[in-house]
Design a protein around this nucleic acid. Sequence first.
DNA 1: ATAGAAGTTAGAGTTAACTCTAAGTCAAGG
DNA 2: CCTTGACTTAGAGTTAACTCTAACTTCTAT
Lengths: 142, 142
Amino acid sequence: MSYSISDVAKMMGVSAHTLRYYDKEGLFPNVKRVNGIRVFEESDFEWLRVLNCLRNINMPIKKMKEYVDLCALGDASLRERLAMIEEQERNINSQIKQLQYYKQEIDFKKAYYTKAIEMGSESAVRDWPCKTATLELDKLPG
Amino acid sequence: MSYSISDVAKMMGVSAHTLRYYDKEGLFPNVKRVNGIRVFEESDFEWLRVLNCLRNINMPIKKMKEYVDLCALGDASLRERLAMIEEQERNINSQIKQLQYYKQEIDFKKAYYTKAIEMGSESAVRDWPCKTATLELDKLPG
DNA sequence: ATAGAAGTTAGAGTTAACTCTAAGTCAAGG
DNA sequence: CCTTGACTTAGAGTTAACTCTAACTTCTAT
C-alpha cells in the first residue's frame, strides 16, 4: 500500500505544503519518487512518527535535520544520537514541569474569577491570598 | 521600592528590549512613568507574574492584549475573563498530555540507543517492538 | 483525447516574537 | 562642564516555520 503526499498530510494533520517544506529541509531523505512524485510507504511511517514526535516537543527543524544526518551515518553516530535524545528528554521534562507549575496559577485564576462572579464583583476577592504572589520573579521555572 | 526596566528584565529573565516590545503591544497599561522613564513598583509585580504565566503557556501576545483590555473593563468583563482562563486551562492540559505522550516515545528511543550502543550496532535492536509503532498517525495527540 | 484534480518546483510572502539600530534625553559622578 | 551610562522612541532587521503563487507536469475518468 502506498500513500500520496496529501494522504500523509491528512494522516499527520498538517498541510501537503508543510510536508514539501520538510522535505526541502532534508527531513525525508528516504521517500521514494515515481515520475518525480513522492510515494510514501508503510515503511516510511516509523520515520514520520519520529519526526512528528520531535516536532511536537518543539525541536527546531535544523536540529531535526542534524538528527537525520546522524542517522545516515549508521552505527558510527549512535552515541551522538543518544546524546541528542537525552537532551530532548531533559527538555521535555522541563517543559512538563513548567507547564504543571503554570497550571497551578491558571487554576488559581479560575477559582478567583469563579468566586468574583459569584460575589458579583472582583473587589470582593481582590486580596485573596495568592500562593504564587510571594515568589521572586527570578525563581520562576524558566 | 521601585525598579527600572532592566531590573525587571533581569528578574524575569528576558531582555529590556522585550519588555519595551510588550509595552508597545499594550501589555503594561498601568506602569508609571517619571520623565518618560518606566518605573515599576511592587504593585506591578502581580501583573508581571500573570503575563509571565500566560507567555509561558504559549498564549499569543494578541490574546494577552485582549485579556488586558478585558481587565480594564472591570466587573463587566468577569465572565469573559473566566472564559479565557478556562480556555487556557484546556489548552495547558492538552499541552501537558501531549508532552507526556511524546515523553514515552523519547524514553523508548533512549532505551533503544542505549541497547544499540551496548550491542555495538543498531541492527541488533532494529526490530525491537515499539509500543507506539502500531498507532495510526491520525490518532496521535494533536 | 481531453478535462480536471492533484502532483511538481523555485521562490516570494506572511506571521509571530523578538532583536537591534540610530538618534536623542536625562541624571549622576569627577 | 562634561562624560558615561541607562533610559527613550520609531522603525528596520531577523528568525523560524510555515504558507502561498505561478507555471508546469502527471494521473484518472469520461
